[in-house]
């Protein structure tokens, strides 16, 4: 029986060559973009809900104010600020953007897939079993040591990583570039919506404020003093809510602009071949090598 230990340094050097250039900068950028997108999507969804509800409140307030006048509001005439179809398509588009961002992040960082690790480990173990079986059943002596089987598994993982990275490198940047104008249009469109929501929300609050004031004044002394006091105290609270909503919508618009800029940068980085500095490339290469070394170590410990 012949067993020999392959030099560890040589093995890792070979694996580094096999694994090729890492896509970690892309993975980092896409992960950041995905995280920012998720937050913007959730905030935008909340903004739509809040704006529609606020407008309903303002219209209901008007309905009450006009109820006993000679020109009452017909409840049938109350329309939502954004109808169901409008909200649905906006939700679908926002979900689509979130899925896009999450998928490019997953694909870009998903090189160390547990399934690939599992398949590569099984391959090495089966190779060893094959050697044992052949040695026992035929005159051919093919004894594969545990170390050699682990090395084979690690090499297979590196090969898998390489093929996956190549697939990602060839496909993802193009999709990001193609998507860039769509993200730009989408963020502008969302921002255009927010312009309208800001404009409307300001007046909705003003309406609610004036209707509340009129309610208090018309009620006069029919309101018990404590209740009257409570109702009057609602007036500044309405103004505080108005300001908070305005701030929230303004911040959301700023986030949308940042999202577009981030995606532009992502598309530019995906287009430029030499976007990363040499140091960054070396660091990424080292990270990749450490990943493979960890995998090798995990196999050795499990034996």
């Amino acid at each position: 029986m012949r067993e020999r230990q392959p030099p560890r340094g040589l093995l890792l050097a070979c694996l580094l060559l096999l694994s090729g250039c890492t896509l970690s900068p892309l993975a980092r950028n896409t992960a950041q973009f995905s995280s920012a997108t998720s937050s913007v999507v959730e905030n935008t969804r909340n903004a739509y809900r809040a704006a529609v509800r606020l407008n309903e409140d303002a219209q209901y307030s008007l309905l009450v104010a006009r109820y006993d006048t000679d020109h009452p509001l017909d409840p049938h005439s109350i329309r939502p600020l954004i109808d169901e179809k409008g909200l649905e398509v906006r939700t679908e588009v926002l979900d689509g953007l979130r899925v896009y961002a999450q998928t490019i992040a997953d694909l870009s960082s998903g090189v160390s897939s547990p399934k690939l690790d599992e398949a590569a480990a099984a391959c090495g173990a089966n190779l060893r079993s094959l050697g044992d079986a052949l040695s026992g059943a035929t005159p051919v002596t093919l004894k594969i040591s545990g170390t050699e089987a682990n090395a084979a598994s690690t090499a297979l993982k590196a090969l898998g990583d390489l093929l996956i990275k190549r697939e990602i490198k060839e496909s993802i940047p193009k999709i990001i570039r193609d998507m860039d104008p769509n993200v730009d249009t989408l963020t502008k469109l969302l921002s255009s919506d927010i312009d309208v929501l800001r404009d409307q929300a300001g007046r909705d609050y003003e309406q609610i404020l004036a209707q509340q004031d009129q309610f208090i004044r018309h009620a006069g002394s029919s309101l018990p003093p404590v209740e009257r006091r409570t109702e009057i105290q609602r007036l500044p609270q309405i103004l505080a809510d108005k300001k908070a909503t305005e701030d929230m919508l303004r911040d959301l618009q700023a986030s949308l602009q940042k999202l577009a800029v981030t995606h532009h940068a992502l598309a530019a980085a995906a287009t430029t071949r030499n976007d990363a500095s040499l140091q960054a490339r070396i660091a990424d290469l080292r990270a990749s090598a450490e990943g493979l070394a960890d995998f090798y170590e995990s196999l050795s410990k499990s034996k």
Binding site: V89, R90, V93, G96, Y100, N182, T185
Partner: peptide, 18 residues
């Protein structure tokens, strides 16, 4: 906002394609 809905609909297809 209704006018924007039409634009969102057009954009939805492109995002789903990606």
């Amino acid at each position: 906002l209704e006018a924007n809905t039409a634009l969102f609909l057009a954009l939805k297809t492109k995002i789903l394609d990606s």
